[in-house]
Amino acid sequence: MLTFQILANGLVLGGLYACIASGFSLVWGVLNVINILHGSFIVLGGYLAFYAHAELGVHPFLSILIAAPLFYAAGYALQGALINRMIAAPVLLTLSLTFGLDLMLQNGMLLAFTADFRKLILDPPLGVLALGPVVIPVDRLAAMLLALALTGLLYLLLSRSRIGRAVVAVRMDREAAALMGVSVKRINAVTFGLGAMMAGASGPLLATIYPISPLAGTVYLGKAFVICVLGGLGSVPGAMVGGIALGIVESFGALWFGPEHATTLSFLLLIVVLLVRPTGLLGRKGYE
């Protein structure tokens, strides 16, 4: 019975991980920008939900609707104003740029919100879903479903809409896309906006589960890295698959080898995937 409980734990944890990683994967895959700001965007989304709930009584799931357009606009503006200026530079330079911006954002949040940990508590709580002896917390399940929905929407957007096809075209061949009349700069900004939107939308979800603090983003970022490489860079379903794979591996790893080795096992898995399938589980050659 313990095995089923651990499997359920792993699945819902994987849903959270997919939430954390999908926007990061998109930006990395399409723009070749490692957006160190991603973790802090999630935290900022969390603060938004926390204060909307504490001051105005807004349910965190509703806050997602506020956070998504706000973060999209902020991401679009940031890409247009700053990151586009060095988009052609080697990846290490854009990494340094987002790293610097992240330091500023983190310290700004420290000043604005202080270092205290905050937690969004729902009253009454969402409770648990009991399937026989296996219990699944509803908030995590909701987060997983939302991650699935957001991922699905993003997937549809990328595969069906004109702008989505342009994003994919830029990912496949920047020069050729430009020659076909795609405004690469605009598509870059749209992509970064979408990435920021995904981060901002996961913030309120994670705020119901994790304590919020200005520096919490670093841990999310570490997970996002692993998930992206596991799932395949730039592949939206890849982030989902990578997230769930990581969630399950960590859960069973903790059971079999002790909780302190859960992360060791996930990094081992990462090395194996890199050796056997360097493009990740769902990644395709030629996209990077």
Binding site: N9, L13, Y210, V219, K223, E250, S251, A254, E260
Partner: peptide, 10 residues
């Protein structure tokens, strides 16, 4: 459990 653990469910 390791520092930075995001899940204690197991």
């Amino acid at each position: 459990y390791a520092i930075g653990t995001l899940d204690h469910a197991s």
